[in-house]
Amino acid sequence: MDIISSALHDAFSPFALSFVLAAIGLNVHFGYTGLLNFGQAAFCAVGAYAMGVSVASFDLPLIVGIFFGLVASALLALVLGVPTLRLRADYLAIATIAAAEIARLVFSTSFKEYFNARDGVSGFTRGFRDINPLPDFNGQFLTFSRNDWWVMTVGWVLVALTCIFLWLLMRSPWGRVLRSIREDEEAVRSLGKNVYSYKMQALVLGGVIGAFGGFIGGLGLASVQPDSFNTDFTFIAFTMLILGGAARILGPVVGAVLFWGVLSGVGSTLARLSSGDNPIIPPDLMGSDQVSNVRFMLAGLALMLLMIYRPQGIFGDRKEIALDAR
């Protein structure tokens, strides 16, 4: 029973929410437009830090901090896009993966009076917690605190609104241009569309959605730390996107929930099996201290099996994938 509840806890937690939004942003980049952004962590980090520093160091209201976070992530998209989006797709991938590492290192080593190195930024959540309308209860309700519930409410409403917005966008001629760019830029250009401008719009949109992921993650943990935004962050978000199905509105949402749920469920199952005086899994094979690593190994295995037997993800259209083989 506690295996299921811990799985559900992790699947819907504020932590998972930040990945949901990051993966939705990646879906705009990679799923719809075919942009290889390997630095989604940078967009989340820049958004979260801009919000956190504005509030914690400059005593600005939270809403202003959020505004600065959105502006910062949009600017990052412009800085990355201007030199690379006219070039082949690989260049954006290289630039973004480098940008993500640069951002993380800057946040963890420079401007310490603002970023506090590895400790990160904290003390920016008061404005958010003050407007929590939920009834006051002591302790926890369904394994979440009152603050968690507030973050989750806002976060999941945000996810729903983002999904509706993207659904409206992607069924429009604008979305059709993006999907066409994913397939063949030159064909789109030959029909009089400014491909560069569309790619830039997609990069900014996905980056801004990623910044929202940074906000929710920061508000959930009550701090913003550089190490939460390492390269793993981006690759886990990619895994979720592919698991759920790229270029499907709900793909990244379901993928993220499922990923954390299963990962946590497997982890606590393994922990149960390998602990105690007489563990079911022999200690020589796997000790209880190795659980957190082994579950990521199993996640990798599961991802490989998924790629082999269901490459389109959960929501994807098999017919679309089959066209690639022609």
Partner: peptide, 19 residues
């Protein structure tokens, strides 16, 4: 075919969500 049409209002980001 529809992609080929020029001057589409729905190809602007701000107009796109408003069918």
């Amino acid at each position: 075919m529809r992609l080929g049409a020029t001057g589409q209002r729905g190809e602007s980001f701000w107009a796109a969500p408003l069918k």
